[in-house]
Design a protein around this nucleic acid. Sequence first.
DNA 1: TATTATACCTTGCGACTCGAGGTATGGGGC
DNA 2: GCCCCATACCTCGAGTCGCAAGGTATAATA
Lengths: 122, 122
Amino acid sequence: MVKADATTNSTATSFMNGVPELLLLRLLQAREMYGYELVQAIRDETRDAVQFGEGVVYPVLHALEKDGALKSRRKTVNGRSRVYYSLTAAGRRRLGDLTATWLKVSEAIQGVLTGARHAEAI
Amino acid sequence: MVKADATTNSTATSFMNGVPELLLLRLLQAREMYGYELVQAIRDETRDAVQFGEGVVYPVLHALEKDGALKSRRKTVNGRSRVYYSLTAAGRRRLGDLTATWLKVSEAIQGVLTGARHAEAI
DNA sequence: TATTATACCTTGCGACTCGAGGTATGGGGC
DNA sequence: GCCCCATACCTCGAGTCGCAAGGTATAATA
């Protein structure tokens, strides 16, 4: 077995749990989009820093719809059938909560990484 | 008393995969520490924004040692036996890689959240 | 003496991610 | 007309990870 590990995949770093959900909600807040489009939008908007395949995106979309955070409608464009998703009120709330949590957590991690002694209390 | 975490813990989105490893490496870069101490250090330095229990910390420490990123030594202090961990050269390299990846990814997510049109190319 | 705090550890469930695979159709090139 | 690619949807199985819960042992404190 090749050692080769290093920065490759094995233990590799996916620091992202719940991130698909967060990004999907955020993109759909801006406008109605369909699954295949979302896969590429995430790749594009993050300049390839973040990539989620269809095997990630579709299940998350289905779960969010089942939870009432998204609603969908079929639409045929250029003879192609697409499922467009958009946020519900619950989805907007969820996006707000997730965003707040993400900010809090990522700032805290940032703080540890930059060696910031747990800063002064408020 | 019920802890009753407000934000529905069920699917509760803990955006953090690989974060335990990252924080542990970072803290141990500063100085030699032991498991029980690390659990509290993470809580303290992140002002409770991030918390990892012993069930997370110990297994990660063992895995990192097995991978050669950490080395340990037993030491008895005040009649208490502790296992102190410190970084190896491989561990320092790993910390550097993980930190770079974390920065790239978290900035990309930040960009999407703030609606930054995938900024200008270099 | 009993309880709490320190300090170590493992196990089993559940959740998440992802590659791989499967279906179907429209458009271009030959 | 035919083949292949891109579009567009989907599921399954494997593997990983996080975590609560549980377990041991000892020092300090009440």
